[in-house]
């Protein structure tokens, strides 16, 4: 439906009917302090009862409100976006800080996990920035990022509205004072999800599977432990974020099954880039990009041999986890424990 179609609907149907079909219409009314208008008639009629003063404060005439309402409904009833159809990105090499060519072309498909390794300050964030803005040879690195194998023009880049890339990092916090359930519901509502309860339930269960320590849906998000927060953020990104690309900047070791977390995102057909120096995460990826001197130095495909080593690394990891739990419960760290 386009604006003229909505105009017809708004002029002919009562506000109550419109709200029933588009619950988000209530938000529009609230934004203009019009929550209490009469809903037994179409909006233009209902507006006749509203004092001029309220409308003047928002700088709007009655016709503007109706027009804005149409645009509002159009904006929030588009279910398909250009983001739904991103199934691969291709990084075409540019130059490093020494102006040496990178000579690479790497295509990453949905469901693939790529890790990015390199010393601090080597240029990892530059690569992530290039992906975020879909560089077209116009950034300092001269890299080009193609989507679905095609070049992207400036108009398409602007259209992304900051939604191409979802980010997860160690520095992120919840700043809202809501319970886990309320938090997920709020996110689901903003995605105009039809079956809110079902998605929220799945998301919550999944977060609990990833978290070392379980939490209830009535827990305030601000009271979650570091691991629980990370688990909830990852489950939420997997089930509810619309962004086709997920950039992960180091997930802390404690209290979350980080390998499962990354695999979950992959299962949800996301394109995943993990900046890390954690061997467990790096080897869980299909390939790893090695950054040096501000450029892509090489790309290593995780070999079968490396993957076999994962088992040993996981053993180290679970030993550490066990030691942590022993500490927590007041036990002594004995030699026997270490040999397990």
């Amino acid at each position: 439906m386009t604006t003229p179609d909505f105009m017809k609907t708004i002029n002919s149907q009562t506000m109550a009917a419109v709200i029933q079909q588009y619950p988000i219409a209530m938000d529009f009314l609230a934004n203009y302090r019009l929550n209490d208008i009469l809903k037994d008639r179409p909006l233009p009629k209902a507006l006749d009862q509203v004092e001029d003063e309220i409308l003047e404060e928002f700088g709007l005439e009655r016709d503007d409100i109706v027009q804005n309402f149409c645009m509002f409904l159009e904006t929030f009833s588009q279910t398909e976006t250009s983001l739904d159809s991103v199934w691969s990105i291709t990084i075409n090499g540019g130059v490093n800080k020494l102006k040496e060519p990178e000579n690479i072309s790497l295509t990453i498909s949905a469901g693939e996990i790529i890790s990015i390794v390199g010393p601090t300050g080597s240029g990892k964030s530059r690569l992530l920035n290039d992906i975020e803005c879909l560089a077209q040879g116009d950034t300092p690195t001269q890299r080009q990022i193609m989507v679905n194998g095609a070049e992207i023009d400036d108009l398409q880049r602007f259209e992304m509205d900051g939604k191409l890339v979802a980010q997860l990092s160690q520095n992120m916090n919840f700043v809202m004072d809501l319970t886990a359930r309320e938090f997920l519901e709020m996110h689901a509502k903003s995605r105009l999800t039809a079956n809110v309860d079902e998605v929220v339930e799945k998301c919550f269960q999944c977060a609990n599977e990833l978290a070392g320590e379980k939490f209830s849906e009535d827990t305030k998000v601000t009271q979650l432990s570091g691991g629980q927060s990370r688990a909830l953020m990852i489950a939420d990104t997997a089930y509810m974020s619309e962004s086709p690309i997920v950039l992960i900047d180091e997930i802390e070791n404690a209290g979350i099954d980080r390998r499962q977390a990354v695999l979950l995102l992959a299962k949800k057909e996301k394109i995943i880039l993990v900046s890390t120096h954690d061997p467990l995460l790096a080897l869980s990826a299909d390939k790893r990009i090695v950054i040096k001197n501000g450029g892509i130095y090489k790309i290593i495909v995780t070999s079968e041999a490396e993957k076999r080593n994962l088992a040993a690394i996981e053993k180290f990891d679970s030993t550490l986890l066990m030691l942590r739990n022993s500490l927590r419960t007041g036990e002594l760290i004995t030699e026997e424990l270490l040999e397990l």
Partner: peptide
């Protein structure tokens, strides 16, 4: 945006669009 969760960023952007 680097210090809040992805969910809060998305809801924030949604509210701007409103």
């Amino acid at each position: 945006g680097d210090i809040v969760s992805q969910a809060e960023r998305e809801v924030f952007a949604f509210n701007i669009k409103q």
